[in-house]
Design a protein around this nucleic acid. Sequence first.
DNA 1: CGTTATTTGTGCGTATGTATT
DNA 2: AAATACATACGCACAAATAAC
Lengths: 248, 248
Amino acid sequence: MSGKERETEPAYQRLSRELRAQISAGTYRDGLQLPTESELAQQHGVSRQTVRRAFHDLVSEGIVYRVPGRGTFVSENNGRYLRHHGSIEDLMNLSRDTTMEVVSPLQRRMDIEAASRLRLDTDVVYTVVFRRFHEGIPFVQTTVHLPETVARHIVDAPEMAVGSVSAYTVIGLLEPLLDSPIVEAAQSITVAPATSDVAKDLDCEPGHPMLRVDRLYSNADELPNELSTSYFLPEQYTYRVTLRRGAH
Amino acid sequence: MSGKERETEPAYQRLSRELRAQISAGTYRDGLQLPTESELAQQHGVSRQTVRRAFHDLVSEGIVYRVPGRGTFVSENNGRYLRHHGSIEDLMNLSRDTTMEVVSPLQRRMDIEAASRLRLDTDVVYTVVFRRFHEGIPFVQTTVHLPETVARHIVDAPEMAVGSVSAYTVIGLLEPLLDSPIVEAAQSITVAPATSDVAKDLDCEPGHPMLRVDRLYSNADELPNELSTSYFLPEQYTYRVTLRRGAH
DNA sequence: CGTTATTTGTGCGTATGTATT
DNA sequence: AAATACATACGCACAAATAAC
């Protein structure tokens, strides 16, 4: 899609992606888990160091853990989709192994609540609704509201049309086009029942308990640039975040 | 635990520790920041790969960022101040306007799952269950599991006895007593139905959809020191985090 | 109880690619 | 165009932890 052709994926990323997929498909389910570094190196025709680099990423995502002298094991998480969000960059890279499908196109709308949360002085917002798939299964429905000044950058983008399937995130599309970069995302996480729209898009029962995540992205001037509301299927998704202590 | 005295610190850890200290002391404040990989390698008598390993850790901690062809820079705002608004300090200060009441005292128990998540080589853990009130209303029930080596510090504390009401957090009580400070908390957030125990403690229906938060606190040696599982009443509680980005 | 094989951890040297200045 | 600096990748060696004998 609309992009640089000449991008070759690094070997360690390709490997970690494959392993991630195999793990979530349950290939290495029980007992002593994954192949050793040497085995993987040989199987994939890469050096042991490259395998180590791939494992390093999986460890930091919390997908596997390693024990010297024993091996590498899948962290048991019921096979749910695990995503590690520790920074805004992580949110923008959500597209790495998911695809998004537009359910309702980016269009002008009146929405008092969204407008007020975006701190606008009108009721006009631009709204797009999409769902996101992981390995063919829809696991989240997201509604994004944008101020008119922000929306105009992408209102004609093909990725925002109905039925469009792409590997982007809205914030990832938007961010390079903004005058002032996004520096902060305030999140609210709670539990909410699935609305009928959500239930339809995610193929679950209306009223089903969902993980609801609201995000307000703001730029360096502390102006909100995007408000998103996501309903995650808890059976398919766990939200992970790592908090660290300042360097003191 | 943490007993071994004469463990030699790996070179990359020593280097990243030194850099962390220098950064937080303001040594590399302005302009184009840190020395190049080659310079550091020469200065410290290590290979460039070792420098890269150290930088890799600093990047993942959000302390520095790197630009190919330009160099390595201190993330503004980091090092001295916090980058996540929802930080470990916030978790420790949860007690600010809440009180905790012990439901089941800190006692020795066998728990295979908790032990394995704490990466122990036995099945023995110490467990305490309590609920937390805000303005007289119980809004969360928490089960905390500790390794024996950690639990011994507080096993006789009056705050851990049944019915004890206090304004502490377990991690806040523990932290000053540990050899190695807590530097990281990995959280998993999902939705789960209330168990009968939870329902009883929080006065809700069994099976009621709850916000479930698992936290694994680890010290500077990356050893887990506390595992907690909390069930929050979504009607009473919303989880909020702010993610920030380093300098552009 | 030590020995040995296996597996991950650390570290170095080198080569090549890519982005920036 | 050239120099600089980070990114990726390979290969090798040895250390440390673990498990089996």
